[in-house]
Simulated scan of single mutants.
Amino acid sequence: MTVLKPSHEGRVALVTGAARGIGQAIALKLAGHGAKLVLWDMDESQETAGMIEGANLIVTGDVSSAADWERIDREVQERFGGTDIVVNNAGMGSPKPIDELDIELWRKTFSINLDAHFLSAKQFVPQMRAKGWGRFVNISSNSIGLAIPGMSHYMASKMGVIGFVRGLANDVAASGITVNAVLPSITNTRLTQDMPEEEKRRTWETQAIKRFAEPSDIAGAICFLTSEDASFITGQALPVDGGQYKIS
Rank of each mutant, 00 (worst) to 15 (best):
L114E: 00
I112N: 03
V137L: 05
N113R: 09
S120P: 02
K108D: 11
T109S: 11
N113F: 10
M128R: 01
Q127F: 03
S143P: 00
S143G: 01
S143W: 07
F118D: 00
F118H: 12
S120T: 04
V125S: 03
Q127C: 09
M128A: 10
I112L: 08
S140V: 06
P126L: 09
G134M: 07
V125T: 10
W133L: 03
G134W: 04
P126D: 06
V137I: 06
R129P: 02
A130D: 15
A116V: 06
V125R: 00
V137H: 06
T109R: 06
L105G: 00
K108G: 00
N113D: 05
I144N: 05
K108I: 01
S143K: 07
W106K: 02
T109I: 10
S111Y: 02
L105R: 11
S143T: 12
T109D: 03
W133Q: 01
N138L: 13
R107N: 15
A121F: 12
S111G: 02
Q127W: 04
V125W: 05
R135T: 09
F136A: 12
I139P: 02
A116L: 07
S111M: 07
D115T: 15
V125Y: 03
L119S: 09
D115F: 12
F124N: 08
R107T: 14
S143A: 14
I144G: 08
S120L: 05
I139R: 06
W106S: 04
K131L: 09
N142C: 08
R107K: 13
H117C: 09
Q123D: 00
F136Y: 13
D115W: 11
V137N: 05
M128T: 07
K131F: 02
S120N: 04
R129E: 15
S140Q: 08
G134D: 10
S140A: 15
S143H: 06
N142V: 09
S140P: 02
I112D: 01
